[in-house]
Amino acid sequence: MLEVLACVAIQVEADQWGPSTVYRVELPSGSAEVLHTLDARVNAIGYSAAQDRVYGVDDDGGIVVLDRTGHPVARSTGHPGFLKHATAGVVVGEKLIVRVGHLMYWVDIDPGSSRYLKVVRQAWLWPPQHALNVDDFDVNPADGLLYGVATFPYGHAYVVAIDPDTGRVDRVPGTGTLPATHGYGAVVMGRDGALYVTSNRDDGRSVLYRVALDGSEAVTEITSRPARRSIDAAGCLSVPPIVDPPDPTVPPTTPPTTPPTTPVTTPPATPPAEPPLVPPTSTTPAPPPVISPTSTPAPPTPPASEEPPAQTPAPSREPLRRPEPKAELATDGHRNVRDQRRWGLVAIVLILGAGAVARAHARHR
């Protein structure tokens, strides 16, 4: 919060004799840094945020233009001398408003104007008991009025507001009182809504005060420096925007990119497992082996199982007209094996029978 409300002002200071020195003053701390020493005495300065330039009036009544480092960048020539002895200045829009005695003057500071650095308007300040004692002012963006401090030789000083359109000067209630000094030559409106005013000389010191504008009448002394004969300030200077550093825990957001289109290749389907081999089905039974009476048949192959696996007959669309031989209903190799076994048994029976007949016949002889 303090960094957001910080303000940097340009301040010009001069002693009894000699040119002005430009300072960079930080608010609200009040720390000051020397920027540059000019070749003339300058007062009644105002800051243009749009141009980032400081405009002021020298001892001869000419307009001096400074950059934010305090170096001159332009100066008017042949200007009439009625701006001499200007004591207060502020930039409003494209105009530098300065006070000289009981008058306010508007100076055109638009670089593109044909009347650049020329006086284009003047107005009276009234009532005179307030107007003649205001040494500096700054514009309050909240209401557009010019706020300054009226100082009297005897008694206290107090905050006043000036209407730039009519020139009327009024005391601001609820702002408290300030010590009576030799004038408050530097007035800056802070970003925190308070008024920062600096006295020229107060018991050998130049004192910076913060004056609250919230009706609390709070006046706070901030810091002090050596006394000066002439002081004026302008600000707050524009600052670059504050950018928060990226959060290292959050990955940066990047716009989605469309990947290059690549052909989609479908992997070949896995071929189904091949079914187990089934012996070919034969509807015609194999012929029985030819057995001669003198040959010895091979021993029969033992059956793999007593009964063949059950078969589910295929449904028939019409009834059977006659029974079919069982041999013709065989649909697999097991039927062929069974038929071969039967023929083998028949052959064995025949051989055994023939042997028995031969032995009986031999005994009878």
Rank of each mutant, 00 (worst) to 15 (best):
A314M: 05
E26V: 09
P303W: 06
W124N: 10
V197A: 03
D52L: 03
L96E: 04
E274L: 01
G148Q: 08
T331I: 03
E13I: 10
I97A: 00
D108F: 06
A40M: 15
G89P: 03
G56S: 05
S295H: 13
V278E: 08
L96Q: 04
A286Q: 07
H79D: 12
K95P: 05
R338P: 12
G81Q: 11
E13R: 07
D136H: 05
D59I: 00
D203P: 02
Y116K: 02
Y147M: 03
S206M: 05
Y196T: 08
V4F: 15
T253A: 13
F152K: 13
T262R: 07
G144V: 01
V172Q: 12
A212D: 14
P173F: 11
Y23G: 05
H85T: 14
E33H: 01
M104S: 15
A6Q: 06
L66M: 01
A233S: 08
Y158F: 14
S31R: 10
L103N: 15
D52F: 03
P241F: 04
Y147V: 00
P293I: 14
G193R: 15
L132T: 09
D58L: 02
N200A: 15
P303R: 13
D165N: 13
E324D: 11
Y23D: 05
T301C: 02
P127S: 02
A40K: 08
T294P: 10
S48I: 05
I348V: 14
T253L: 14
T37A: 12
G78W: 02
V219C: 06
P289I: 04
T87G: 12
D67P: 01
P173N: 06
Q129C: 10
